[in-house]
Design a protein around this nucleic acid. Sequence first.
DNA 1: CCTTCATTGTAAAACGTTTTCATTCGCTTT
DNA 2: AAAGCGAATGAAAACGTTTTACAATGAAGG
Lengths: 336, 336
Amino acid sequence: MNSNITIYDVAREAAVSMATVSRVVNGNPNVKPSTRKKVQDAIEQLGYRPNAVARGLASKKTTTVGVIVPDISNIFFADLARGIEDVATMYKYNIILCNSDQNREKEIHLLNTLLGKQVDGIIFMGGRLHEDLVREFKTSPVPIVLAATLNQDYDLPAVNIDYESAAHDAVKSLIDRGHERIGFITGPLEQQINGEKKFAGYRRALEEANLPFNEQNVVLGNYTYDSGMKAMNQLLELGEDCPRAIFAGTDEMALGVIHALQDAGHRVPEDFEVIGHDNTRLATMIRPKLTTVVQPMYDIGAVSMRLLTKILNKEEIETNDVTLPHRIEQRDSTRP
Amino acid sequence: MNSNITIYDVAREAAVSMATVSRVVNGNPNVKPSTRKKVQDAIEQLGYRPNAVARGLASKKTTTVGVIVPDISNIFFADLARGIEDVATMYKYNIILCNSDQNREKEIHLLNTLLGKQVDGIIFMGGRLHEDLVREFKTSPVPIVLAATLNQDYDLPAVNIDYESAAHDAVKSLIDRGHERIGFITGPLEQQINGEKKFAGYRRALEEANLPFNEQNVVLGNYTYDSGMKAMNQLLELGEDCPRAIFAGTDEMALGVIHALQDAGHRVPEDFEVIGHDNTRLATMIRPKLTTVVQPMYDIGAVSMRLLTKILNKEEIETNDVTLPHRIEQRDSTRP
DNA sequence: CCTTCATTGTAAAACGTTTTCATTCGCTTT
DNA sequence: AAAGCGAATGAAAACGTTTTACAATGAAGG
């Protein structure tokens, strides 16, 4: 309809130059009110809609940022993405969303695609940061911030919670309830967040209570419900030695744990206590409701995007590496 | 690093014209192999990365499509989005993702933003299509396809399942089990999908079985878990008259229903049978596992995007209005 | 009434591609 | 050897903005 009408048409209609039209479109104050009015009327009349691509070329700003997540259909990243999008909207940015499936080559490819599209910045989420990816990040022509993603050297802008401490708190709360054997169902240990952080927190809590670490109590999952069930069933095979308190690395796995337990005829929290991690909406959609570590995904997304805007605007920044607070939400999968 | 090097630099380095560089970058066959090689080497050497914005301006194609969803943090739309993104990637498109919150003004605003960004097409999801939005859609300079979204006149490209029939089947299966009072927990009736389709299916199933329609058996929810609980509790207040079979408009509400029932000391499926709708991943994350109508969200997304690419490529199209099959996934919230 | 300095407006040069059209090149064909 | 022809290349004009460098206008100061 109006997609073929240009700034030049508006200029002609309003009998001014295109620079003037550009000024009014961009809110430049150096335009006489009467002229502004004239131009606005012309815009209205013609149904003019500025071409963002041309604008991007001329100004070298696209008001678009790239977002790379492992998988948007994962409730966890979906929440994060929503946080990002909300503050992006607030600052007039749009989001190009990409799924990486945590695949290193895809990640690099997506990064290059996004840079080719001239995004003004990028927000990245991923489990493991390969060195070559980090290298690319560091030489990127636009700022990149990590959301809920650790990098070895902590020298990239990032927003996280303190995973070590969160895991520690969760496990300690279980210990404080009198448990001596604590199961830990974790995601892949290659991922720093599991292997270095949550796991360390688990061990620290044990040590502080002078409890022995027993390898058979930690079992690997892959974040999914099914893997949580499977992991719990594996623990149950320990028989007498099976831990009666479980800390699961994600809520979804925790649900699997609880159902595996219930399917085997056990009661939660009477026979077994379980704590999850993330506080996704799932946590309240199960009976018993899940006690869980709250990782504020939405906030992490929002703060990441805000941090990115700060960098883009060259605002003063206290710290590049922000740590958001966590806490444990007490529900019914642990005893009061 | 390389973001300032242009096609012109490559041309100089390879001692050819920029037109030739453009040719090799775009895979134009009319380039002598030796020249092609020379250019590719220069590209490699300089780390040249084509500027998609300039490209978009010159070619009037951005290989970007806009996606408008009510709320990406909703598992339902997240799945859909993943389907869209996957086939978009397949066809070398990127996705600009926007949340509308089903807000009419936001929807219109987003549409205009996307058109301003010169997307090649748009995929839209939303509950209710206001007339002015439909008008904008019809005059849009780029194709728009509706995903899991109805429009009154069925004259826009769209991908859906047959909601009326799906609801009918669900309710009929309940009737076939001997129920005479069937509860229907629905989303807002202004939304065509509920008010016209699912509701109609519900009534048709009743009629076909010569069962009376009773208004008190249908109660409104807003798609959320909590609203499902609340709705069920409201039904329970009917006491003796409370239906013992419930059809819930979404899985999430169905979970709420089941938990409301369990919290009140009832057993599912022994005392009450429940059928959900959508078959989100939630369906298997509850005990009893949820019997539900499967609406293939991922597929709807994927097919929508595929349809869009067909339109963009001017491929032959059988029909603009595609209906995907549905079925009922039998699980444990209904008796065998 | 003439300077001088803001204030507004203009013209034109970027921005980095694609694309059109013309030209040149390297071979056959005659 | 000339002509012809398709393939390969190049020159330059879009594409629709922003931005820069100026010019014109008008008001204020002397």
